[in-house]
């Protein structure tokens, strides 16, 4: 609505009249910034190739959004940082060794098919970056599961391939994981710092937690989804994760390995694709956690965070319907 200011200086406008400082752009760029620690750690462990893959993702995402909107005679929205964020998240979810066309295809699917076809930011049903990655994983299963060993100190990779901790856990169990990493403290340290194979941005638990703390402090995400997500994963890992029977599993390994932290703090909390009501968000988080552990412990894939969030994205509109609170004082509609 245009504000009309005429000679009598009476300003007529529709509500809201008092506006906060927050804009979509401000929030999105803050989220981008909060992913910076994870990105730096990715470059530290996986070398310049990490920056190359992520950069390519961001470039394609921003360019395809721009070209799409220009060619449809719409106002381009690349300035709000959401396309940048989609590209960044997709980049951080890819292995370091992928050839150049993987980020390009993934970003295109993420931005054009998953977001813009549905009407742009605010209407997409699924998290764009995750659809991009799921599409790539199904289409290029070989390329998407070549994990290179981190070499550290910002140097280029020598392309020594290895398995992710969750992959080892699935194939050989806990004992083999111990053999690879030494003892338990060393395993935890590697998982926390990020010195392990995996997608670029998911490896360093500490870097991700720093970013998450920024978002929580600024109030851009609330605790509901991450906490219920992580708690569900922890409890199920503790009860069913062990080999010696119930209640012998190690929840910490499951909590800080795989893409769980990246998913729980940065992708499940996407405003557009999660339920808007708090109670619904808790249900959403529990569902994500349960499906993640179902796939990790019983499924055909070693990691289930991506599919869990996507599946719960399908259910988000339904959850919102289910937990809708009644209007105070409203009379119930008579059933026929």
């Amino acid at each position: 609505m245009a504000t009309e200011a005429k000679a009598h200086e009476l300003i007529v406008s529709v509500s809201p009249h008092v506006r906060g400082k927050e804009t979509v752009g401000r929030i999105m760029w803050t989220v981008n910034l909060s992913l910076l620690p994870a990105f730096v750690m990715a470059v530290y462990y996986f070398g310049p190739r990490a920056a190359y893959v992520t950069g390519l993702c961001i470039l394609t995402a921003v360019l395809s959004e721009h070209i799409y909107q220009i060619s449809l005679n719409r106002k381009t929205t690349i300035g709000d940082g959401s396309a940048f964020l989609t590209g960044l998240l997709l980049g951080l979810n890819l292995p370091a060794s992928v050839p150049f066309y993987i980020p390009v295809i993934g970003s295109f699917i993420a931005i054009v098919i998953t977001k813009l076809l549905f009407g742009g930011l605010g209407y997409n049903i699924f998290n764009p970056a995750l659809i991009g990655r799921a599409f790539l994983l199904i289409s290029f299963p070989k390329l998407m599961t070549i994990w290179t060993e981190p070499t550290a100190r910002f140097v280029a990779l020598d392309a020594k391939t290895t398995a992710t901790p969750l992959g080892i856990l699935k194939e050989g169990g806990l004992s083999q994981l111990m053999q690879v990493f030494g003892d338990k403290t060393e395993l935890y340290m590697s998982l926390l710092s990020g010195n392990r194979a995996g997608s670029l941005g998911e490896t360093s638990a500490i870097a991700l937690l720093i970013g998450a703390a920024i978002l929580l402090y600024r109030g851009y995400i609330t605790w509901h989804i991450p906490l219920s997500f992580l708690a569900t994963v922890g409890v199920i890992a503790w009860i069913f994760g062990g080999q010696g029977g119930l209640f012998t599993g190690d929840p910490v390994i499951h909590l800080i390995s795989g893409g769980l932290l990246l998913g729980a703090f940065f992708m499940a909390t996407d405003y557009v694709t999660c339920p808007t009501i708090r109670k619904g968000q808790v249900i959403f988080g529990i569902g994500c956690g349960a499906i993640t552990m179902l796939i990790r412990l019983k499924g055909g894939f070693p990691e289930g965070v991506m599919f869990a969030i996507l599946l719960m994205n399908c259910f988000a509109p339904l959850i919102d319907r289910g937990v809708k609170s009644e209007i105070f004082g409203a009379i119930k509609e008579q059933k026929k």
Binding site: F301, M306, C314
Partner: peptide
């Protein structure tokens, strides 16, 4: 199509 993509996560479960 996108929901089907998400449902592939269940493959190999049983």
């Amino acid at each position: 199509g996108l929901i089907a993509l998400a449902f592939t996560g269940f493959s190999g479960l049983i």
